[in-house]
């Protein structure tokens, strides 16, 4: 594998994992615009554990994942009191606090960044991405995932059906946090360097875009979204000019007009599902009153 493709696959793997961390909350109807903050906790957690404390690599990952999950769990209770635009802003503010702390703490390298000694090559990244993808697909197929998707569509009715909305959302935040922590740890160890400036609001915006452009209705969404977002700018780069971001922005706008629910919708998955090819014919659309 050439260095160029190894680099792209590494970024793609981290993006896929990162996108799934945000997806797990979005699938239950909660928008998180603070992804970079959660990823930063994982990255700095392992950087501090392995490089400063000299702990082994596995301990670094364990610390990164549990620390991020724990912080997510704690922040979930206040943040989930908020709704819609307020939640978007609350998570955004949280990420700003995290990057501010990273900038201000000398032990975390401050504005100079921090070198991470243990290196993780590209293969473990790819396997982690496959593993996380499988995990999220399983989660969405479970009864718990059914409750998440129901909350995404209609929180009131889900609650009346007996779904404990708050518990499901806190669990989603915690699971999402753990996955974000993993993506941060992989980033830190693959690039062997962390700096606060990387975990910017723009990163949070982009990872939320992976999820929303991909589609929040099925677990395919973030996978397709992050592949789209990682590869399209690369292909545009082959054209060789800074026009690529202009084209890319225009593509985003067009996507929202043409497919506002994301590239992959539930209906699309149902249409493409092999088990459906042999299923009963759908009932004829009879003339009936709409609402």
């Amino acid at each position: 594998m050439s260095g160029y493709w190894a680099g792209i696959l590494a970024i793609l793997s981290i993006n896929v994992i990162f996108a799934y961390s945000i997806y797990v909350t979005a699938a239950a109807g909660q928008l998180n615009l603070g992804g970079a903050g959660f990823q930063a906790i994982g990255a700095y957690g392992t950087a501090y554990a392995t490089t400063t404390l000299g702990l082994p690599l596995w301990a670094g990952f364990a610390i990164a994942i549990t620390l991020t999950a724990f912080v997510s769990f704690l922040i979930a209770f206040p943040v989930l009191r908020t709704r819609g635009v307020y939640m978007v802003l609350a998570t955004y503010a949280f990420a700003q606090v995290v990057s501010g702390i990273a900038l201000y703490t000398p032990a975390l390298g401050g504005a100079m960044g921090k070198v991470v000694t243990e290196y993780v090559p590209v293969w473990p990244l790819i396997f982690s991405a496959i593993g996380v993808t499988f995990l999220v697909f399983y989660l969405m197929a479970s009864r718990f995932g059914l409750a998440m998707r129901a909350l995404h569509d209609d929180e009131l009715v889900s609650t009346i059906m007996g779904v404990n909305a708050r518990a499901v959302q806190v669990a989603c935040f915690t699971i999402g946090g753990a996955i974000a922590g993993l993506s941060g740890a992989l980033y830190a160890h693959h690039f062997a360097f962390v700096e606060a400036q990387y975990f910017s609001p723009l990163l949070s915006i982009f990872v939320l875009l992976f999820v929303l452009i991909g589609g929040t209705q099925t677990a395919w969404g973030p996978l397709i979204g992050s592949v789209f977002f990682t590869l399209v700018p690369e292909f545009l780069r082959l054209g060789g000019s800074s026009w690529r971001y202009v084209i890319f922005g225009a593509v985003i706008v067009a996507m929202m007009i043409l497919r506002p629910e994301g590239i992959v919708t539930r209906t699309l998955v149902a249409k493409l599902s092999p088990s459906r090819w042999f299923a009963k014919k759908p009932v004829a659309q009879e003339a009936s009153l709409e609402r």
Partner: peptide, 29 residues
Amino acid sequence: MPHLSVAENVMLGQHSQALGLLDLMTPVG
């Protein structure tokens, strides 16, 4: 739920009958 299938909507109705951890972790899909 507009984005769920018929079976998934109906299974949501069972939710109150399936609150154990084992039930929640069953990959019904």
